[in-house]
Design a protein around this nucleic acid. Structure first.
Lengths: 242, 242
DNA sequence: TTGACTTATATGTCTAGACATATAATCGTA
DNA sequence: TACGATTATATGTCTAGACATATAAGTCAA
């Protein structure tokens, strides 16, 4: 009765159930640890089948807002201790998203047998060939970031002949290597002579550093270090809920 | 037949379907844009009901791995342009997770009517009272981060009388204010005299800066700036899939 | 008190249907 | 050719059941 009669064009039922519960959690009405009603109670309250409330609760569980325990019930999870999520975008996308013009410039490219330092950076043990690339990204013709990259040719042989003078290696890899996993490390340094010159900032000025290490099913692909002027560049992360 | 007879103790069917598809996407066998089999085809292939394959596909859609379009089918989504997720943990948790001892020290606390600068920092227009707190976190008795925080008392009146000499304001807020939203900005600066002294580093040394602005349903709660020694502290972000 | 066994129950998964709905494709018409 | 109406179809949601399974709680004996 409540389904078609007075529903008008509200969201679907399971979404409304999910939103109802989410709201109570987010407002603190149901604090962490609180047991939310059993499925059969929600079935009675909303006058629907169990599959419908189950779908709502499953999605809340997937979003880590609640924890479900057999025989015991479903419980509001305690917040993940002020954790947040930061999106590190592709540089070109980042710049164009700001409505600025993107510029790219290859500084240097070398093909060589991996040195001990290279192997260390890539986290591989065996010797092999690598491409080392240095390049610069700019926004509205102002240096935006300098990139220092190593690509493992044993994983990406095509990279040996790729033309990085026009296409940034990041974009190239994105289009030539299927989905990968990556680990980022963010830190801060002060600019040395070379960095200062490349970024057109003062020696000793602060720089934000992003080190990204990328692999694909246990095979190292690439290691890259990005340097941004620390006072002008900012990474923004938003966090919502639980 | 295939369910109980030869299944042994493999994962449940819908999970297996989801994993099968996910694998093909991640290995590149089904590249971005590829149309994955229709539900009724998967029903035939796995010999199950449509609800089962629907559950698998719905979860893949929720994870942004595929896009579902009515009448057209389900398609592999193109990767989210090298975006990543970074967890910014609570400092105490961060330190104890590293197996180091956590130390906390209140440097200063002031209750005052909000100055123009305070209001700007909190993003509020009306005048009101605020608490300004300066404190320091340490790991194994070595300075780990200095914190400079502003709490809006019109949103959190209790904070006026809270004892921040033993409990860090971050933990206190976590326990006294229900779920909030936050925005983080990460940048780099060089240490000035005061910062250098507080962190026991050299003047001019690089520092990682996290500015966090927290609100709750359109009400500002707190604004905090955390300064970390840039060469020793690192934020690590992992990225998987897509 | 402790440990082993039993039972009750909430969640987990699944089915074989149903109708709703957005939209790609087709067809007819101006 | 271009546009508007129609149709076919894949997904979206939902039902009223079913059995599986982990486990909290109760029971009983050592």
């Amino acid at each position: 009765m409540s389904l078609t009669a007075d529903a008008a064009d509200r969201p679907t039922l399971y979404k409304r159930i999910r939103a109802d519960i989410e709201k109570r959690i987010l407002t603190g009405e149901w604090p962490p640890g609180h047991r939310i009603p059993f499925e059969h109670e929600l079935v009675a309250r909303y006058g629907c089948s169990r599959m419908t409330v189950n779908k709502a609760l499953s999605e809340l569980a997937q979003a880590d807002l609640i924890e479900r325990r057999r025989r015991a019930g479903s419980f509001v999870r305690r917040p993940q201790h002020q954790s947040a999520v930061l999106k590190i975008a592709d540089i070109r996308a980042e710049i164009t998203a700001l409505g600025r013009s993107y510029g790219y410039e290859l500084i240097g490219r070398k093909l060589r047998a991996a040195t001990a330092a290279d192997r260390d950076r890539l986290g591989v043990k065996k010797a092999g060939k690598v491409v080392a690339i240095a390049c610069r990204h700019s926004a509205d013709n102002v240096p935006f970031a300098v990139e220092d990259r190593l690509i493992d040719l044993s994983s990406v042989p095509n990279a040996a002949t790729a033309d990085f003078s026009r296409e940034p290696p990041g974009s190239w890899l994105l289009h030539h290597v299927p989905s990968t996993e990556a680990e980022h490390t963010i830190s801060a340094i002060v600019a040395d002579d070379r960095t200062a010159e490349a970024l057109d900032i003062a020696v000793g000025a602060p720089c934000l550093v992003i080190d990204r290490y990328t692999w694909r099913s246990a095979r190292t692909i690439t290691a890259v270090r990005l340097l941004y002027p620390g006072d002008s560049h900012r990474l923004v992360a938003r966090f919502k809920g639980g």
